[in-house]
C-alpha cells in the first residue's frame, strides 16, 4: 500500500522533472535569479544601475562575501563553520588592540588580527578531525568560547581607535573602488584557483563527496578538512579587520549573525550543504544576490522589514531544490 503510493508519487515527480530539469535549475538557478533581479531592479529604480550604487553594493557585500568564499571550501570539504561571526569579531578586537597598544603599525596589526582568525580556524579543524566532534557542534562551541574571550579581553566594552589612519583598509579607495572589494575579489580568485586548478582542490571535493573513497585513494581527508577550516578562519579574520577598519570601533558581538548571511550566500549560490559539490564563483554571486535584495528594498522604498521574510523564503526554496535535484540523481 505504502509502496504503491510512493511509486505513484515518484512517477509523477519524475514526469515533472523530465519537463523541467531540476538539476539544471539548481546548477544555474543562481545565475538566472541574479540576472532576473538585476534587470528588475535596473528597470524599477533609476538609481540601481549606476556606477555609484554598483560600487556601494560591492563594498557592502565584501565582508560577507569574503567569509562566504572561505566557507565554500569548508562546505565542499564536507564541513560546516558556524564560528566565523565570532572569529571576525575577535579578529577585529585584536587588530584594534594591537594597533592602539603596540608600535607595530597599521598593516602589521591588521595582518595579525587576520592571522588570529587563521589560528581559530586551525583550532576548529583540529577539534573536528582529531577531536572527532561534529562540525556543527564544534564550531557552535568555539563560537561561544570566542565570544566569551572577546568579552574577557574587552571587559565587554567597545574598543575605539581614534587615529583616522586606521580606516585606510576599510574606507580607502583605488580608482574610486574601496579596498575591501579588491580584497574580496583577490581572495575569491586565489580560493577559486586552489579549488579548480590544484591537487588540493581536487582533494577537497573528494573529501566532501566520498570520504571513504578518498581515503582509499590516498587522500589525507583529515588534513584536507582541517586546512579548509583554517582558510575559513582566515577569511573571517580578514572580514573582521575590514569591518573594524570601517567603523574604528570593535566589540565582541559586533558581527553576530554575519555567519548566517555567509551560509545563506553559499547555499543560494548552489554549493551543497552535503559536500563534494560547489564553486567559489557561486558564493560570490550568492553574496551579491543577497545584498541586492536588501539594496532593492531600500531603493524601492517598500517596507524594509519584509526583506528578511523574502530572504528566508528564497533560502528555503533553494535548499528544497537542492534536495529534489539530488534525489533524482542518486
Amino acid at each position: 500500500m505504502t509502496a504503491t503510493t510512493e511509486a505513484t508519487a515518484g512517477g509523477a515527480a519524475a514526469r515533472f522533472v523530465r519537463r523541467v530539469d531540476l538539476a539544471v535549475i539548481r546548477d544555474y538557478g543562481v545565475v538566472v535569479a541574479f540576472v532576473a533581479l538585476f534587470i528588475t531592479l535596473s528597470l524599477s529604480s533609476n538609481v540601481f544601475f549606476t556606477w555609484g550604487n554598483m560600487k556601494n553594493l560591492a563594498f557592502q557585500t565584501a565582508p560577507v562575501g569574503i567569509i562566504a568564499v572561505g566557507g565554500t571550501l569548508v562546505f565542499i570539504g564536507g564541513g560546516f563553520d558556524l564560528s566565523v561571526g565570532a572569529i571576525s569579531g575577535f579578529a577585529g578586537i585584536m587588530a584594534a588592540k594591537i594597533f592602539t597598544g603596540t608600535g607595530i603599525g597599521l598593516w602589521g596589526s591588521l595582518i595579525l588580527g587576520a592571522l588570529v582568525g587563521l589560528g581559530f580556524g586551525l583550532g576548529n579543524g583540529l577539534l573536528i578531525t582529531l577531536g572527532r566532534v561534529n562540525a556543527f557542534i564544534a564550531t557552535l562551541a568555539t563560537s561561544i568560547i570566542i565570544n566569551g574571550l572577546g568579552q574577557v579581553v574587552t571587559s565587554g566594552n567597545l574598543v575605539s581607535v581614534s587615529a583616522d589612519r586606521f580606516t585606510t583598509l576599510g574606507l580607502g579607495t583605488a580608482w574610486g573602488i574601496n579596498y575591501p572589494v579588491f580584497v574580496w575579489f583577490g581572495f575569491a580568485g586565489v580560493c577559486g584557483f586552489l579549488l579548480s586548478r590544484t591537487a588540493f582542490g581536487r582533494y577537497v571535493y573528494a573529501a566532501g563527496g566520498n570520504a571513504e573513497a578518498a581515503r582509499l585513494s590516498g587522500v589525507r581527508v583529515n588534513v584536507v578538512r582541517a586546512i579548509t577550516f583554517c582558510i575559513s578562519g582566515l577569511a573571517a579574520g580578514i572580514a573582521g579587520v575590514i569591518l573594524v577598519s570601517e567603523v574604528q570601533t570593535a566589540q565582541w558581538n559586533a558581527n553576530t549573525g554575519i555567519e548566517f548571511d555567509a551560509i545563506t550566500a553559499i547555499v543560494l549560490g548552489g554549493t551543497s550543504l552535503l559536500g563534494g559539490e560547489g564553486a567559489i564563483w557561486r558564493s560570490v554571486l550568492g553574496a551579491f544576490f543577497l545584498q541586492m535584495i536588501g539594496n532593492g528594498f531600500n531603493l524601492l522604498g517598500t517596507t524594509p522589514e519584509l526583506q528578511y521574510v523574502i530572504k528566508g523564503l528564497i533560502l528555503a526554496g533553494a535548499v528544497s531544490l537542492d534536495a529534489w535535484a539530488r534525489r533524482r540523481r542518486a
Binding site: 573528494a206 563527496g209 566520498n210 573513497a213 582509499l216 563534494g276
Partner: peptide, 12 residues
C-alpha cells in the same frame, strides 16, 4: 561507497 565520487567526472 568505497570507490567512486559519483558527482565528479570520469577524469577526476
Amino acid at each position: 561507497r568505497q570507490g567512486l565520487l559519483m558527482l565528479r567526472s570520469v577524469v577526476d
